[in-house]
Nucleic acid binder design. Structure first.
Lengths: 189, 189, 189, 189
DNA sequence: CATTAACCGAGACGGTACGTCCAGTCTTAGC
DNA sequence: GCTAAGACTGGACGTACCGTCTCGGTTAATG
């Protein structure tokens, strides 16, 4: 059944590992994400895991990157407020409700102990995500809705910072009223 | 050297454990904070640790709470802008530069994998800290600088959220310009 | 139930390990004597095994030494032929039929790949055994049954060599006729 | 480099495997004789090994059989004492000094854990060797030097048994005096 | 003279056992 | 009664080989 051969790795094994890691995280928490557990659940040998991933966080990182790939492109309705409200709300749902969001929270947690992972996480995910976060603002500048000299990065920090803060620090829910309020305060300025 | 006696726990042992945990975290990172490592470094038996702390995160939590206790009381200069700027800057320094800040980052990271720790962290630290964060705003309301119906919690999220976001997520520095800018934007509203 | 404490190791664990190793060898052969298998069967943690024994052959060596301790003291009936016949027969039974004999065969086999084990085996067992093998001859010399200038070591080689040869090399049985014949040939000289 | 063809196995690969196994045993001991190690050293695929040999001991067995093939034919000088002394001395040298002797010792060791190998070893080697060992005696019987009713097998056990015993068990050297002495004692009877 | 079957190397695969590290529990002797 | 010491079970770590399995390339008899 397995497809090990000179043409390279088994896609079936790869996917089974990623799925197993995801499932273990979702069902039993980060502490249950062990290489042995993944191997058993995926029906894969440990060596196969170590052959392709340096550590278990690399598995989660790949699983996350794959799952998250097409998500979170901000909508473009032609109105800054509409776009921002929709985007922040979707980001909040992603972080608090989705499986890849749970993986991201776990990885962000682990990154506090592991600078190398922190760097990788920023390279692999945050860079792209911030680019997506900037889109509504950049389009608004083009449309003249926002001044051309706006500090976009600062604006992004103001908009998404409180959201991540709730998710990662206070653990409070992030209802639509909250994200809408953030947008409202931002626009009033 | 050990101070076995029938009169209660050894304060020397307690402090040695807390110091050892702090030092290990600072010098060799969270992964090096093991109960055995702490015991060896502190010159203490593992059992002594387990007698007084349920787990290693409890040690860090206690070490952190002790170190952090008197810090971060927001100044009261009688002016909202001045107070907020000073407070946010000190918070930023605390989170990014201080040893207890490093412990807090590590604990916050661990809390992403450990809901029980998350709860404890909020109880033991965040509650108090948020109260301190609210002080400048409450005083400003009393002074009439801010409207009485201000949603203070939301305002705190707006002010400190971007700061934690930089510390925990993007890893970017948090210079005084950044915190000043946050205050400026907040006050302009 | 376990008795780990500062006074030293658990005798129960020690004996369980030795028994498990013995049993595995007897029941399922040398290939089944794995540290993990011993640990499981003995109801002991692997770490406990590695704490006290450097390798699995050390376990077998200790098990063997303990089992073999009081065996094989040659009889003293006051007659060389009688004593030698009895001693060789008992040695043959020990090597071919007994559990410690099976362990010795396995260790002797392993010693062919492991010079250090070979040395240990000679120190721990063969030295004593050869001393026992010499006893009947020495007593016969004292009684005047054998010349005082007899090369005792050579005589031992002649007497037991063919026996070990059958056991270890040809695998033929070692019946009483065979050992009796060896003695007869030796005495006729 | 490889010689794939439809007409049978590659002799080059076969010989490379046998040499690699021999060399590994001689240089790094039995524990280093692994199928992977042999394959790497021989520049051969593991599959090629498994195609032709059921296990690594089969490789050693074949290597040994090939190396040993023409050795050890007992001389025929027409005198029993002369022939036996020469034959035992050559056997001692073979077992203690030669490369195939080292392989035989390793195989004999392994055979203590592996009854199937023991059987094969007796079939492939010991049978022939014992036949060679019997030759000097049979010729002496024909010449009338020994009685016709001599138990030849027993005599062989007496002559070579002590030699194997020293090689496999006590590890003592087997000098010419020793083998000569065995012959002398045998002839005196 | 092109096909094509038998053999080759390479190497991924599911497994088992290795020897290590740490978690968390337990027992004892000393102060 | 608390302490240091340290043995204990348990479980995950990362590594080494096992024996099995494709695969693409090489070669030589066959068609």
């Amino acid at each position: 059944m397995h497809r090990g051969n000179r043409h390279g790795r088994s896609e079936a094994a790869r996917q089974a590992v990623l799925d197993a890691a995801d499932d273990l995280l979702a069902e039993r928490g980060f502490a249950a994400v062990t290489v042995e557990g993944i191997a058993t659940r995926a029906g894969v040998a440990k060596q196969t895991i170590y052959r392709w991933w340096p550590s278990k966080v690399d598995i989660l990182l790949e699983a996350f990157t794959q799952d998250m790939a097409e998500h979170l492109f901000p909508p473009d309705e032609g109105d800054l407020g509409t776009d921002l409200r929709a985007h922040l709300h979707r980001l909040a749902l992603f972080l608090t409700e989705s499986d890849p969001g749970a993986v991201l929270r776990a990885l962000t947690g682990q990154a506090q102990h592991d600078p190398e992972l922190a760097t990788r996480l920023r390279t692999d995910y945050l860079g792209q995500q911030r680019e997506r976060d900037r889109q509504p603002l950049l389009r608004a500048i083009e449309r003249g809705e926002l001044p051309a000299d706006l500090d976009v990065d600062l604006a992004v920090d103001e908009l998404v910072g409180p959201l991540y803060y709730r998710v990662l620090v206070t653990g409070e829910p992030v209802p639509r009223e909250f994200t809408d309020h953030l947008v409202q305060r931002f626009l009033r300025n």
